[in-house]
Amino acid sequence: MVFNIQHYSLHDGPGIRTIIFFKGCPLRCRWCCNPESQNHYPEISYDEKRCLGNEICSECQKVCENNAIMFSSEGKAIIQRDKCSNCMKCIAECPAKAYKKEGIEYTADELLDIVEQDSIFYRGGNGGLTVSGGEPLIHGQFLIDLLKAAKKLRLSTAMETCGYADYSILKQTAEYLDTILFDIKSLDNFKHIIYTGKSNQVILNNFESLCNDFPHLHKHVRTPVIPGFNNSIEDLQKIEDYLKDKPAVTYEKLSYHRFGVGKYKTLGRKYPMDD
C-alpha cells in the first residue's frame, strides 16, 4: 500500500532519488507532516481549493451512494467522513481532481519499473530508491522482497524509518540497504510517549542491535527538532552523546515546519500540534 511516489528527491539519501512512501505507521507523532501515511488502509483526500463549487458542479454528490457529500455555505463540497465508506466513486467524477485516493496497491515489480525509469538520474551521485512512509517496516515481507529485488537491479537503496518495528524485519531489510535514515526523536521515554504515542525502548534497542549486526551500514540519524518537545540544548546534547561511539553514524537535526497543516484538513482531521 503506497501513498505517493516522489521523483527528483534531493534530501533523502545520496544523489537524486525516487522515494516510495508506504502507508501505515505505528506512531502518531503530533508534528507528522504526512498524515495521509498514518493509516494503513486507502483513504480519500479532498482539496477544497480545487473544488469548482456547486454553482457549476455537483458531480461528486450525484454519484455518492451514501449521501456523504454536502456543500458548505461557500458552495464547496464537504465529505461527511462518518457517512463516507471510502468507495472512491467520487474521485473519477470530479472534473477538477479535488479528490485523491491515498493508498494504491502495487506489486514489487510495478514499483521497481517506476523507480527504474528514473535510473539515468541515479548514476552520477549514487542516487536510487528510498523507501519511506508512514513506516515501511510494517510492510514486513513485502518490503524485504522489494529491497531484495531492487538490489538485484543494482539500485542504490535507502530506507527512512522511525525504528519502531520487530527487529527481525529490520534486520532482514538491512541486508539489502546501502543507507538507513533512522529517527531518534528523544531519549526521554516519558516525553516520547506523550508526543509520539509510543515508548522509545523498542527503537533504541533496535538501534543498538543494528549497530552490532551491521557496523558498516551507513546510519544517518535524524532528529526532528520540535518546540516544546525536544528542542532544549540538553535533550539534543544527550542524543549526540549517545551516538558518539556508534559505528558508521552521521547525524542531522531537522527543523520543524508546519507543512502538514493543510493535509490534515484534506483528510478531515485535526492538526494535533494545535492542541
Binding site: 539515468i120 548514476r123 552520477g124 551521485g125
Partner: peptide, 22 residues
C-alpha cells in the same frame, strides 16, 4: 533552495549528466 550549497551543486551536476546521457 534546490541547488543550495555544495551538495546542491553536486546534484545539479548529476542532473546535467543525466540530461547529457539522454
Amino acid at each position: 533552495a534546490c541547488v543550495q550549497g555544495e551538495s546542491g551543486t553536486q546534484k545539479l551536476v548529476q542532473f546535467i549528466e543525466a540530461w547529457r546521457d539522454l
